[in-house]
Design a protein around this nucleic acid. Structure first.
Lengths: 363, 363
DNA sequence: CTGAAAGCGCTAACAA
DNA sequence: TTGTTAGCGCTTTCAG
């Protein structure tokens, strides 16, 4: 069967030109037989297609066609993490489902570009045969992102980075959402709070994040969420410099659990743990459970995103329309018919006060 | 910014040839500057790259390069359902994560080919610029799958269809797994069982499936699972013609719930509901709960796949290594170095007897 | 280290 | 309805 595969490979000898020669017609005619059936008689078309089958001609080569037509028929997706992360993070999965919906409506393929955080090889981006890119949540100043901007194709960014000229963006108001969250907690009497956040920059810092680090964060979304909290709590006179913020490089439940542990060990007076993602919050809940803390009586925990697992856990969180973001990103990229200027689409979020937030315990 | 985008588009005027002309060097040299840095002096390379930047030359066009090198740098993925299904079904997501891991290791992109069940346009397959295809669980006799076979590139099939010459396959022993499941249930005393299965063929049949329909199923995996059950129960003298099988076209929890309802309404004597997927089983559990049935006292429910949600529900099921299947499929496709013959890789499964299966109630 | 030649396989005017 | 002409933009022997 090795030979069979070779056989399969060998077929590639037939080409549009050789088919035309065999048939004694022009290449145009053969091309038309595939691409414009109405441009030649059904009989001739039949004959072309039959001969193609006989010769093992697999139809016009897609790459050659792309070169000629200047369309790849696919959109590229770029994300910070390794390619497989797209399927590991529930938020990413939802985003991609939305994006895929837009692609399928358009008959476009979706190419996941193979980047990895380690092998920083912008070559993968340069090598992707796509008609445009959707960039999902990248830090400022990323090599792969720069490589995308070099490419002469349209780009839509989701979430971050925000400050990119000539590029459409879809996102949410992370700042406002977190101001609301802070107010919610303030309303419940929380004055001693702690924060668990995702990676702030590309260097690994699993531990407390100073205010300087927070302000210098290269991940804008995290930066804005923190600023939102800071402002919201400031309204109640909470001094942000006294608010412990623990950062985790990895985005996983166990990262959330260990971050919660680390924070509470040093700041046992904290009555609420605000997390910048549901995943981290679910981890925090797990830690609380293991530490024998009752939520929300002993400790309030909140998340961000609104993933299904958060709903099951009755987690207080900010729901964001992740799937719609994906779809909107795809539509922005593909339906770029009449638009005149680059646009930023901000989708609405919703604060869901559920079972994990309650009145602050006395401290 | 509209103009800015046009500006972005317009850059495309610069080409390798024009750059070479501008620099007064040959195209080879420019090409080497990008692809073989060791083939020219650092100084010259600098000059080339700088001029490229100045002219807005975005680097070698990926499509043209692909045409020339005959490598697309991506593998295509084909699945039955619409493209977005890849992100909707937890089993598919796991498979894709595995596949993505293999791609990542290889520096290959992953192109999700835009097929949709409605618009049966094999053109999308023909148009995909990829070095090979992974086909995930397709029915016998699918147009898109045939289109894949036409393409002169290697193909790896996951699960189904099985009987394809010259094509590698990765899967599990669906038959044996279900024989085991049947024995497990027989051991618990179940003799009156019902089955909930996924789509058996491409026509929609939401309801009971006759034995003829079961035997003619175009989805081999479902067919084999049913046959396995049939054999396993036959060992205990259960007459398969008396076993109700309810089929659902859609694969969702609510499909499972309604199927369970439909089956139990007509066959209240059934003590166990065997489902051919966890999703269907979770739906069956939901229905049981709503109908006031206690699992497993009143009713035993089993699944297949071993998704995370099944674990949370303590569902008795067959765990299959979905992620490994994805990775193996990718590796088979990409590491096709020394292999001599087309291979079938059967991965192990494991029966997990958990909380949803128990001794049959008296009937 | 650099250049010349020779396509990769196809489509799209435009003519006939 | 069919054919002719002209590349799309690039890489790659092979000489120099």
């Amino acid at each position: 069967m090795g030979e069979a595969l070779e056989g399969r490979r060998a077929r590639r000898t037939a080409t549009l030109a050789s088919l035309a020669a065999e048939l004694g017609v022009s290449r145009t005619t053969v091309s038309n037989a595939y691409n414009r059936p109405d441009q030649l008689s059904p009989a001739l078309r039949r004959r072309v297609l039959d001969t193609a089958r006989r010769l093992g001609y697999p139809g016009p080569d897609p790459v050659a066609r792309s070169l000629r037509t200047r369309k790849a028929g696919a959109v590229g997706l770029l994300l910070t993490e390794a390619l497989s992360y797209a399927f590991r993070d529930p938020v990413a999965v939802q985003f991609l489902e939305g994006l895929a919906l837009a692609c399928e409506d358009n008959g476009s393929g979706l190419l996941l570009v193979p980047v990895s955080p380690e092998a920083d090889d912008p070559g993968a981006v340069a090598r992707a045969g796509v008609d445009g890119f959707v960039v999902y949540s990248m830090p400022d100043d990323d090599d792969n992102f720069h490589a995308v901007l070099e490419r002469p194709v349209p780009v839509v960014v989701c979430d971050q980075p925000t400050a990119v000229p000539d590029v459409d963006r879809v996102g949410i108001d992370d700042h406002a959402a977190m101001v609301d969250m802070a107010r919610h907690l303030v309303g419940l009497g929380h004055r001693h709070v702690g924060v668990l956040c995702m990676r702030l920059s590309t260097d690994r810092n699993d531990g407390f994040a100073s205010i300087e680090r927070q302000e210098r964060a290269r991940y804008e979304v995290q930066r804005r969420r923190l600023t939102g909290l800071r402002e919201g709590f400031a309204e109640a006179g909470v001094d942000w410099s006294a608010v412990p913020v623990v950062e985790r490089y990895d985005h996983s439940e166990s990262a959330g659990a260990s971050a919660a542990e680390q924070l509470l060990a040093r700041h046992p007076d904290v009555t609420a743990l605000v997390c910048t993602s549901d995943i981290l919050a679910l981890g925090a809940l797990r830690h609380a459970r293991q530490a024998g803390l009752v939520v929300p009586d002993d400790l309030t925990v909140t998340g961000f995103d609104g993933v299904p697992a958060a709903e099951r856990a009755e987690l207080t969180t900010v729901r964001q329309p992740t799937l719609d973001k994906g779809r909107a990103a795809g539509e922005l990229l593909l339906d770029r018919g009449d638009r005149q200027r680059s646009r930023t689409l901000l989708l609405p979020t919703e604060l869901l006060a559920r079972a994990t937030s309650g009145v602050a315990r006395a401290t």
